[in-house]
């Protein structure tokens, strides 16, 4: 370390003086000078090792070949290496087995949030609860149109769903419509009248919704006697559903409610297995696979764990 112990009165100055304080011409301490040159050297080394000088197209690459995207990919590889043993086991397990295994279930619940957010949350909401009045099915209650077992959820995810209720505008008088609307709302509250039941049966509603109006999961026909509304419990909305139906191609005012299939190939396979047939005979080559089979299983477990799974 260079020490300037010289008497300031004997050191020449730059001629700058401010309130009696002179700017002396002492050299800076040696360690300081060395540090300055070293930091300059560091910049030079950095320029050689890393991308630094901007050119017309791109920049110099640097000896290390470092790029941000490479670092990102390395990070991604790291996390995938941690997940790999779990993912491998997942591929070999059925959704039901995953559900029964504490460790795997916790892994899926923790790691599937992003997948759910990318593919499902837009309609069904982040926690399985869609925006009220949006008309998308709620995933975290115990009311399932097609069944809430893990296998049924896999089936729904794979093949998608499109329920169908014909519009009744041409079959009902104004008065009958009013009565049916009232019946449906009363039924939900457990207050349906005899007259209501009579009209319900007369108009053939039981064909899909059942003689006890508790719905039919084979058809995706909702239960009319519970407190959950597939669309809305407002009289005007109930009226619209009765008059114009759901997914009724002949009625331009019908409700559109279609869930796309996320792995049609898996849906076809499941169907074939149900009948004990070889899936290869069933494929026609047009089946889409937006998500892998493992991803479907993970999502099914994730949805099942919202609290409504059966």
């Amino acid at each position: 370390m260079a020490d300037n112990k010289n008497n300031p009165n004997e050191v020449s100055d730059t001629g700058h003086e401010w309130d009696g304080i002179r700017e002396l011409e002492n050299p800076p301490p040696r360690w300081w000078t060395i540090s300055l040159y070293l930091s300059g050297l560091l910049v030079l080394v950095y320029f050689i090792l890393y991308p630094s000088i901007p050119l017309v197209t791109g920049s110099t690459k640097g000896l290390l070949g470092w790029t941000q995207i490479k670092e990102y990919h390395r990070g991604l590889e790291e996390i995938e290496a941690i997940r790999a043993p779990f993912e491998q086991r997942l591929a070999e397990m059925t959704a039901q087995e995953i559900l029964d295994d504490d460790e795997m279930r916790n892994y899926v619940v923790a790691s599937t949030r992003v997948l759910y957010g990318d593919n499902c949350a837009a309609c069904h909401g982040v926690g399985g609860q869609p925006v009220p009045g949006s008309g998308y099915p709620i995933l975290n209650n115990d009311d399932w149109l097609y069944g809430g077992t893990i296998d049924k959820i896999v089936e729904t995810l794979a093949g998608g769903r499109a329920g169908m209720m014909p519009g009744h505008a041409n079959l009902l008088t104004e008065e009958e419509t009013d009565k049916l609307v009232k019946f449906v709302i009363d039924a939900s509250n457990g207050e349906a009248t005899e007259a209501g039941w009579k009209l319900y049966n007369e108009k053939g509603c039981f064909a899909c919704h059942g003689a006890d109006a508790k719905g039919n999961q084979m058809l995706g026909a909702p239960n009319l006697t519970d407190r959950i509304w597939r669309f809305s419990g407002e009289p005007a909305e109930v009226r619209r559903t009765i008059l114009h139906g759901v997914n009724d191609a002949s009625d331009p005012r019908t409700r559109i409610a279609i869930m796309p299939g996320f792995n049609e190939r898996l849906a076809v396979k499941l169907e074939a297995e149900e009948f004990g047939d070889d899936p290869e005979d069933y494929y026609d080559g047009t089946e889409t696979e937006r998500l892998s089979e493992t991803e479907i299983k993970k999502l099914a477990v994730f949805v099942h764990q919202f609290g409504g799974g059966q």
Binding site: G127, R227, I228, G307
Partner: peptide, 14 residues
């Protein structure tokens, strides 16, 4: 927290 509660088919809150 998201959602805070869910209504079930029998009207109970979960």
């Amino acid at each position: 927290r998201q959602p805070l509660y869910v209504q079930l088919s029998d009207g109970s809150i979960q």
